[in-house]
Amino acid sequence: MSRDALPRSAPQRSALRRAALADLAGLRARHPQVFSVPLRRRLLVAGVVAGLAGLALVAMVRLDFSLLRILTGLHRLGEFAVLMLPPSPEGQGLVFLKALAETLAIAFLGTLTAALLALPVALLAARNVMPNVFLRFTVKRGFDVIRAVDVLIWALIWINVVGLGPFAGALAIACSDFGAFGKLFSEAIEAADRRPQEGVTAAGGSPLHRVRFGLLPGVLPVLASQVLYFFESNTRSATIIGIVGAGGIGQYLTELIRVLEMQQVAFLVLMILVTVAGIDWVSGRLRRAIIGAPA
């Protein structure tokens, strides 16, 4: 695809273009519908664009946007950028590595716990497993409520229960992912192929047999790939959970930014970038292996 990408245009060389431009009036007369957009559509587009821009203007006034602040801020950001070079751990490399390991552990445990807990509950929210409308509806709205609470808020709540530290972070990620997984899993289960399930039922299997042998083998690869995808994004979330004191690399990041130790900040950010890219790569390969494998 990349080989035969668009040639950088060659307007002068194209005979077709010259011919078309010479006959522009004729083309207009012959294909009027191409050249004129209906007025209603034009008004609609203009209205939507004007509405969006107007709202943006109102928002900028309400939120105290000021050009002066932006310019001085950009100037100071430039100074920070200079201060960041060269990135260096300044003797704290081992501490940072330990914090990074903690971050990964939080993401891993949180994702795994959430997935294990969400699977049985998601079955209750799937139309093809749970015939009871009322129960299904309740479970689905429950997922929505849990999902609506940000992971940082969950972290604040769990800190009240188990104290400061990475354990609270893992619980927070588990909670917020439980909602997300519940929704995704139940959708995947509803999209599952009916035929294997009918086969199991026809052979005299119980509803549990149907779920275990007719449903799960089909959807597990899909679910596993979603879990891997979330593990990736949770590594990113786990880096910020330390801001409220729930462990991981975020703690150091917050402190170092506050005291303007920009070289160490740059080092930490680089560490995060490399780690996320690494996990991205590994989970991408795993995902392809799982999805590609005959389920």
């Binding site: 105290d64 801020g73 910020i240």
Partner: peptide, 28 residues
């Protein structure tokens, strides 16, 4: 694009708060 999306928004906010001062503009 990758750098923009890998660094969490709260981290950008932390740095911007120091550069631009407190307020919703930083969040935006």
């Amino acid at each position: 694009l990758e750098i923009c999306r890998t660094v969490p928004e709260v981290v950008f906010a932390l740095i911007f708060v120091i550069a631009f001062g407190l307020g919703p503009m930083v969040g935006v």
